[in-house]
Design a protein around this nucleic acid. Structure first.
Lengths: 229, 229
DNA sequence: CCAAAAGTGTTATGACTACACCCATGA
DNA sequence: TCATGGGTGTAGTCATAACACTTTTGG
């Protein structure tokens, strides 16, 4: 019998979950930040919401709890996907903490006034220009963005960032915002409609004093794997 | 100060790494198995190589150590990619163990005679027909296979499963084996050559008594993201 | 009638699919 | 010369990319 099969000798590590919750407002991608008060390492600092995994919790439930308690957002509104597990020895200066990182996506219009609002403890920050975060959260955010970018190209995850009913222009802007490049309006429409993942809904939306736009919604509520963009 | 900021109250979980090491022999995908002796839960059972993360180890190094000590393969030969972190409460009947799972890829011809050989403690098993593994390893293997399938379609990971110099027929068979479908020889060759990821090498290989085949190798040693198949 | 966003079609180019025969070799 | 795997080309179809003007609306 070796050391590991004897429970007395089992080695422990601290396990945490960190979450990069994204939303989109006025064509800008935002990420949820929280205050990190960890003197002397991170006095008056900021980072992604995170916390330790409880003994009777799967990592995804930890992520949900953190979204609720730390990010102050109702977790059932947030679409979660596991991102990567970060286990660098010194990623937390207080000791060995391994973090299972998640990506969270939520549509801005699904958020309550409270959830949209910024507070001293948690707030929305534009992704562009967000850096110098506590722990290894710069790295986590970078990996999360890369994953988000690649996933919108072959899945329908973008459905979790736009409102339930949207115009094709809004959808195109969401793609452009995450991909960081502009798309051809006519080609985008042809392509997205041919995929057969959207359905027209009866209403139209008027923005300002101009021509109203047809509204659409995703036919399926679940994230599907298809070739987009 | 809340409970989590007080080191006395930090909650611990057991962390492990599990590895699905794949290789390919005679057009069949094999996965490395090990004996699991955990009475009364898994007497005389089998599973993927796995073990606990040491305090001063990143998860990937744990995976390498397990590949060396448990799977009995020189870890530097194995290409590793993090797969997913499994944290179901009861995935290990002995207690709470969270596993960071990895995919390992190694070319059969890179293995020594010892490494190719099966022993009572660790052996190669054809992926097709491998099931009823210990812990949640059926699930891990399933997720690993899905990931492997999708990754060979948009990266050059297959380079880690074929020998350094290979014929186009060998490469095509490797794709067919993992994708589980046959490809058109002419179309496959046109496509793979146009991608500009292979270079001809001077030699030819004769199999049996027939016409010798041109040898190729991947131009880059690293796994690249490109649209294949 | 003006300003602004919504909406729409064509053409050229390149990629993909389907498909069948000749070539080189060793026995 | 035969058996076997190696190697190649074309035509039809489909997807992509580039590109500009008309429509609808409220003020």
């Amino acid at each position: 019998m070796n050391a590991e099969s004897d429970p007395q000798h089992i080695r422990f590590a601290v396990l945490a979950a960190d979450v990069a919750v994204f939303t989109m407002r006025e064509g800008k991608l935002l990420v949820r930040m929280m205050k990190v008060e960890r003197p002397p390492y991170f006095p008056n600092h900021r980072g992604l919401p995170g916390g330790l995994i409880h003994p009777k919790e799967i990592a995804e439930d930890t992520a949900r709890r953190i979204i609720e308690d730390r990010a102050r957002i109702a977790p059932k509104k947030v679409h979660l996907e596991q991102l990567y597990t970060f286990s660098e020895i010194d990623r937390d200066p207080r000791g060995r903490v391994v973090a299972v990182a998640y990506i969270g996506l939520v549509a801005w219009d699904q958020l309550s006034a409270e959830e949209q609002k910024d507070s001293p403890s948690t707030w929305w920050a534009p992704v562009k220009g967000t850096s110098r975060l506590a722990y290894d959260h710069d790295e986590i955010l970078k990996v999360a963005l890369n994953r988000l970018r690649s996933r919108i190209e072959y899945t329908t995850v973008i459905s979790k960032l736009v409102r339930k009913e949207f115009t094709l222009t809004e959808l195109e802007e969401a793609y452009e915002c995450i991909l960081g490049k502009s798309l051809d309006k006519r080609n985008f429409r042809k392509k997205i409609l041919k995929l057969d993942i959207l359905k027209e809904v009866s209403g139209k939306r008027t923005i300002g004093k101009f021509r109203p736009a047809q509204l659409y919604r995703f036919t399926s509520n679940s994230v599907q794997e298809i070739e987009i963009v």
